[in-house]
């Protein structure tokens, strides 16, 4: 029988070129040649490079590939920080959302920076809550029932009266940190509206305009 070579039998070609042949980054070749060589097995692109990158298999790779990775993925992986913004606390947290008929805790990462407090959800990316530090007027820790267990939650009041309810694992730490960064006296008693009260002036969207507006302190 005669051997065949079908041009488009891609699997055979992939097998040879990705798994076999000489490689430059093999130690022996570098030591034999003694010159700067680099090379990367791109098998990963086919085996789901993104997964490999996420699991840090990247570590052992070339610096240049890491640079490529940083460039390619940085925007998607990091948080929406602005220039000069410094993260003071980053912790897993959630915020109570009671817009309309949906009452639920929305989880994400809570960031306290030198000028903002915000809750960021990575996937799908969404800013769940954001407040400028100078708009915070009141701060209060309060014990609440959560699935029949008591836990501490943080209530925060903005200058337009909006009240948000936040949960993080260490409420005390967050509270202290916010107090320190804000650097002004905060009201430590907040009138929390009962859940049954029909929501009206405290709805986040109803005061969104005011937060961004000209109403300063």
């Amino acid at each position: 029988m005669e051997p065949t070579r079908l041009e488009f039998d891609i699997n055979d070609v992939l097998e040879k070129l990705l798994n076999k042949g000489l490689v430059l980054n093999a130690d022996l070749i570098i030591s034999v040649a003694g010159i700067p060589l680099l090379g990367v097995n791109l098998r990963a692109a086919i085996a789901g490079m993104e997964t490999m990158l996420e699991y840090g298999i990247m570590e052992a790779w070339d610096k240049s590939t890491r640079e490529w990775y940083t460039k390619e993925f940085a925007e998607r992986m990091t948080t929406p920080l602005v220039m000069g913004e410094e993260v003071i606390i980053r912790t897993f947290g959630s915020i109570w959302s009671n817009q309309g008929i949906i009452n639920t805790w929305k989880p994400g990462f809570l960031y306290l920076t030198n000028n903002r407090l915000f809750l960021w959800r990575k996937e799908p990316p969404e800013m769940l809550f954001e407040v400028s530090l100078d708009k915070i007027e009141g701060l209060m820790a309060k014990k609440e029932n959560h699935f029949k267990k008591e836990r501490e939650e943080l209530y925060l009041q903005s200058d337009c009266g909006e009240i948000v309810r936040i949960h993080v694992s260490n409420v005390t730490e967050l509270k202290q940190a916010i107090r320190m960064v804000v650097g002004k006296k905060l009201e430590n008693r907040i009138m929390v509206p009962s859940e049954r009260t029909p929501p009206s002036p405290w709805l986040p969207h109803s005061c969104a305009v005011e937060i961004g507006g000209s109403k300063g302190r």
């Binding site: 040879k16 070129l17 990705l18 798994n19 076999k20 042949g21 000489l22 490689v23 430059l24 980054n25 034999v32 040649a33 003694g34 010159i35 700067p36 060589l37 680099l38 090379g39 990367v40 097995n41 791109l42």
Partner: peptide
């Protein structure tokens, strides 16, 4: 030929490649 695996990139220009060939020539 001596085939290389996909994505082997030498860092440097033609002179670096030449140098590499001359050093590894025997092998």
């Amino acid at each position: 030929v001596l085939p290389f695996s996909f994505d082997a990139v030498v860092k440097g220009d033609d002179d670096v490649v030449k140098d590499w060939l001359s050093k590894g020539y025997e092998k």
